[in-house]
């Protein structure tokens, strides 16, 4: 029988929000005023995302990285992280803005192995560079493809 020890101490949404605001300044992490059950919405600075994720994983029991998605906002790129806590039953959505000419952000694969292929896919589709990623290569398209298809300036083929 596997012991599931992390289910012992759970935090409520208010406790999580309070801990984040006490740990980070408002420049680094900003919690948005949008209330839905079991959800927290926040934005983060691109230099503090790794610190925030480490804090979430180690201090607040967020043990599952659900999703990492890239977004092309035309004037900037965004990376959206959905990180779930099995213990707290909370999902946190973190939006990080990246400049359009230099889309680089720290990889969170060292924290959660599940983020590995999500980050590769974001690189494949948008050309966002994840620093310290173990293998940042194309995953869905062929190796020799020259374009990043999900960027808004790429027009899809067809009719």
């Amino acid at each position: 029988m596997t012991e599931v020890t992390y289910l012992t101490d759970a935090f409520t949404i208010d406790q999580v929000k309070e801990k984040i605001t006490s740990e980070f300044s408002s420049d680094e992490v900003k919690i948005l005023d949008k209330n839905k059950p079991r959800r927290i919405y926040c934005t983060a600075d691109k230099d503090s995302i790794l610190k925030l994720c480490t804090f979430l994983k180690d201090a607040l029991n967020f043990e599952h990285c659900s999703c990492v998605s890239g977004v092309d906002r035309i004037d900037c790129f965004q990376v959206v992280y959905h990180i779930t806590s099995y213990a707290n039953r909370i999902t946190i959505e973190i939006v990080v803005d990246l400049p359009h000419d230099n889309p680089e952000v720290d990889s969170i694969t060292p924290l959660w192995g599940g983020a590995n292929w999500h980050e590769r896919e974001a690189y494949d589709m948008f050309g966002i560079i994840f620093k310290n990623h173990p293998k940042l290569a194309r995953i869905l398209l062929d190796e020799d493809v020259q374009f990043f298809p999900m960027r808004k300036d790429f027009k899809s083929g067809g009719l």
Partner: peptide, 17 residues
Amino acid sequence: INLGVTGPSLRGSGVDF
């Protein structure tokens, strides 16, 4: 949990999620 496995494969490893 670390690799992000979910669903029956995760519950087959004894995690109640």
